[in-house]
Computed example of a mutant assay.
Amino acid sequence: MEMLINFPGGKRVNATYKGFTVKTDQPKSEGGNDSAPEPYDLFLSSIGTCAGVYIVYFCESRDIPTEDITMTLCFERNESSHLMEKITIDVKLPPAFPQKYKKAVIRAAQMCTVKRNLVHPPEILVTTNGEL
């Protein structure tokens, strides 16, 4: 599998994969134009949306409507390392959500592939022209 990363100018960096282009930029305070999310914002949103799609799969398999389900992702960042120390996802279920599935929907969200990759991170190599 391959994803193409290109540099369209300024502080913008884009990723093209499966026919979609994901655009990023830096805030004006960092020399960007603030025209798109920062890459780290996409990292955080990928965790939330991944957990969310597992909730969708869970609910669809049980004919539970998802329109009134929301989630909030909160995070704590270490100020000196700028790395996340804690990420909390709060699933807000509507009153009509079946009580017997509350713990199961949490387990479903925890199956998120992005989260599981953080628990068991891949090796990441950076090369130039295919050489280390």
Rank of each mutant, 00 (worst) to 15 (best):
M1G: 15
M1P: 11
M1D: 14
M1Q: 14
L4M: 13
I5R: 03
N6R: 06
F7W: 14
G9E: 13
G9N: 14
R12S: 13
V13Q: 13
V13W: 02
N14Y: 10
Y17F: 14
Y17L: 14
K18W: 01
K18V: 05
T21G: 07
T21N: 07
K23Y: 08
K23E: 07
D25A: 08
E30F: 11
G31E: 13
N33C: 03
S35F: 09
P37F: 04
P37M: 04
P37I: 01
E38S: 09
Y40D: 05
F43P: 00
F43L: 05
S45M: 13
G48D: 05
G48Y: 10
C50M: 01
G52R: 07
G52I: 07
G52T: 07
V53P: 00
Y54K: 04
I55K: 07
V56Y: 08
F58G: 11
F58I: 03
S61T: 10
S61D: 12
S61I: 06
R62W: 09
D63N: 15
E67I: 08
D68K: 11
I69T: 02
I69G: 01
T72V: 10
C74T: 12
E76Q: 12
N78A: 02
N78C: 03
N78W: 03
E79C: 04
S80D: 13
S80H: 10
S81V: 10
M84R: 02
M84K: 04
K86V: 10
K86N: 14
I87F: 05
T88K: 09
T88W: 07
T88A: 08
T88G: 04
I89N: 02
I89V: 12
V91R: 04
V91N: 06
L93H: 04
L93F: 08
P94F: 14
P94Q: 12
P94W: 13
A96F: 06
P98Y: 06
Q99R: 03
Q99E: 15
K100G: 07
K103V: 07
A108D: 01
M111N: 10
C112S: 14
T113R: 09
V114T: 05
K115D: 00
K115C: 00
L118E: 06
P122W: 00
L125R: 03
L125W: 00
V126T: 06
T127H: 14
T127G: 11
G130W: 04
E131I: 09
E131V: 07
L132E: 15
